[in-house]
Computed example of a mutant assay.
Amino acid sequence: MHSVVQIDEIFLNILSWVAPAALLDLGLTCRAFYEPAMDARWVRLDNFVPLLKCLPSNAMADVYDKRTRHKFYITVRRLKPADWIRFEAHARRVKEYTIRASGLGTPLELGLSESITSAIAEHFGDRPVLPHLQTFENHLIGWRDDIRLLLHCPIHTVRLDYRRDPELYGEALTSELELVRRLDTVESLSMGSQLPVARQLSLLATMPNRVYQLE
């Protein structure tokens, strides 16, 4: 092994330039590479689908709704504690969760059905699903159901930025900040550049008595 990759800072910087699809291959080439490569592969998520695919295939099925063009994963049997081992192993690596607005006409794979949400809630209880999650970013008006699974996570940075629908921005924020209120670890809150500063400040005034840093 080259001495350069034995220096954590340098190796992690190298991994940051590797395409996500190649990180698994890299991790499997050497036992010493596996953990840092997997940390880099899972550091960011934009939905729960990759984690759902860590559950046993015989416990899952997918249902495609032609009308909404959404694919939902459902459980076909009761999940046992052992079924969650791979899910939890990679969930602990996630530090950023970003919801991006899907392009028009693009199938949107949301991933979570009521049966999946219930199974996750039952297994984790009050434990955080993503125990090391630090940053949550949302570009899509209207909370998706999966976001409610993040309520117990130690999120300290929240960014809300609905650039595609600026006319609905303020109205959406009023309702969605209600969920942010329940994240008592939040220290930095950004509401994007589309909303006037005065409106941002008026919305912040409704938040709990904590210190926020507007970005």
Rank of each mutant, 00 (worst) to 15 (best):
R93A: 10
V158Q: 08
Y97V: 07
N138L: 10
P131N: 06
T106P: 00
N138T: 01
R93Y: 07
L112D: 03
T98D: 08
R100E: 01
P128R: 11
S102D: 05
L133K: 13
H123I: 14
I120T: 09
R93M: 12
T98I: 13
L140S: 13
V158T: 06
L133S: 09
E114A: 15
T135H: 15
L149P: 01
R127V: 04
L130V: 13
I120G: 01
E137A: 11
R159G: 02
H152N: 13
R127T: 02
R93P: 01
E96F: 12
L104R: 13
D146P: 00
P128Q: 09
G111M: 06
E122A: 15
V158P: 03
H139P: 02
H123N: 14
H156G: 00
I141Y: 05
D126V: 13
H156V: 01
F136D: 00
L140V: 11
L112N: 11
F136E: 02
H152K: 14
I141E: 00
I99T: 07
D146W: 04
R159C: 05
P131S: 10
L150P: 03
I155H: 06
F136I: 10
A101P: 01
I141F: 00
R144G: 09
E122D: 15
P107Q: 01
R144Q: 13
A119V: 11
